[in-house]
Design a protein around this nucleic acid. Structure first.
Lengths: 244, 244
DNA sequence: CGTTGCGTTGAATAAGGTCAAATAGAGTGG
DNA sequence: CCACTCTATTTGACCTTATTCAACGCAACG
């Protein structure tokens, strides 16, 4: 990174947690203003990631976790034989990279699906500071735990839902996450391809495409390429009840 | 076991981490003897769980995580409509219950598949002590991270493997975990039913049963009810390469 | 022994995958 | 601005895999 002459103070001021609009979704969630100030000292770096580029790759040495600020990421794992499993999609306010803590190396890739921006949270400093700031320690543990619970949800989805249910659950999940971030719950733009959705849901891209068409015929959603309108949330939820 | 006249001190002495035979697999892994002594202060309680009983249930208030000492557990999540997804099997030395940290309530059930025994690790004390014992903090974070990575592996399995591959991967995984614990890697007793295996692998119990028979015909394994002999590890590994 | 739960096996079926062709957009360079 | 290219998407026909439904066997246990 080139060291250009930039009004560093201003940029840094804007970039700290205490003045970040995502603070109630992100690592600072629930911390007192004083505690958030300590967090500000921790998060000094930002990193831009262009669409298609990796924030980290499987095998990379682990040094930091990341908070998505803007943009959209996918995580995926690739087997030797080339098979590629998308393990998650990540939106602003979400923390990624925790897979690297256990082995000091990342176990998956994090790829930007659009030009994105992350806060770099150096992990050893996070551990240090969380010793002094109890709220931060607690919050970090919660974030990790929620990741485990999220993964359980994905296992449920992959292990015991039919294709229709998986896609319905996926759309409802996205919708919910968008609304928390102040976007419309009923109208949004998919950042990922049908193939990536399929990989995440354990389906082939053709199946995903067919299901989108089917949901559209049934007036549950409107689809135009990557633009989705959810027309009947209740109807989608009803689909979820039907596979047992 | 009959309650004979036992010198209680001795029993308690035996129950601390520093003299536990699982210490190199469990939370104390990698800690210095001094650090393990601090851990001893933390883990004062034990709990027995009979086969079929729950260590905790979804919705239970969260207060502690647990280290499996003896026995065997499954974790599962149950949907409103009754569908039941097994999300993991847990052996001695493994830490369970971390799903509860994020919401202060457990999100899944932990059920003993045989009479079992766990160390109770009160979570708020773990957080306290990990502030003083850096190695413990690090180790705990590693344990959580590895759980996330394990879950990624399960997603890979459920999302992009064929039935044969799933079962092969499952058997190889069990084998590896047994050998680490000093048991035979090639001969073991399944603690779970075909249905539970199926649930974990996203398959029906009949499919699991058929695959066991098929693997047996191909001389990859020997099966007799719950008793498994792995005859051809390389053969099982080869199956894993074949779905892409 | 009879019961009960678990496991195995077979035949029919359905769900989703594969292969192939057509179409639609987005981006690029003339 | 338009033609061209490339990629993503849609859709159809056919096929494979795993599920469903059903019957039967086995072992443990009272």
């Amino acid at each position: 990174m080139k060291a250009t002459v930039v009004p560093i103070n201003v940029v840094q001021l804007k970039s700290v947690c205490s003045s970040c609009s995502l603070r109630e979704l992100c690592l600072p969630m629930g911390l007192s203003p004083k505690e958030v100030e300590r967090l500000d000292q921790l998060i000094y770096a930002r990193r831009k990631v262009k669409r298609g580029e990796g924030l980290y790759r499987a095998g990379d040495a682990f040094s930091a976790i990341y908070a998505v600020r803007t943009g959209f990421f996918k995580s995926n794992v690739i087997l030797e034989d080339g098979r590629d499993q998308v393990t998650g999609f990540h939106m602003p306010g979400e923390i990624i990279g925790m897979d690297g803590i256990g082995t000091d190396h990342h176990s998956c890739n994090a790829i930007a699906l659009e030009d994105s921006d992350v806060c770099v949270i150096p992990f050893s400093r996070l551990e240090e500071i969380s010793n002094e700031v109890r709220g931060l320690q607690r919050q970090f543990h919660k974030v990790m735990s929620r990741e485990i619970v999220r993964d359980q949800g994905v296992m449920m989805l992959l292990g015991s839902m039919r294709a229709e249910e998986r896609l319905a659950a996926f759309l409802l999940n996205l919708s919910q996450r968008f609304v928390i971030r102040g976007y419309s719950p009923s109208e949004f733009h998919l950042r990922m391809t049908r193939e990536e959705i399929g990989s995440f849901l354990g389906l082939k891209l053709e199946t995903v495409s067919r299901l989108f068409s089917k949901f559209q015929e049934e007036s549950l959603i409107g689809v135009q390429q990557k633009h989705i309108r959810i027309l009947d949330t209740a109807g989608l939820k009803k689909i979820l009840g039907q596979g047992g």
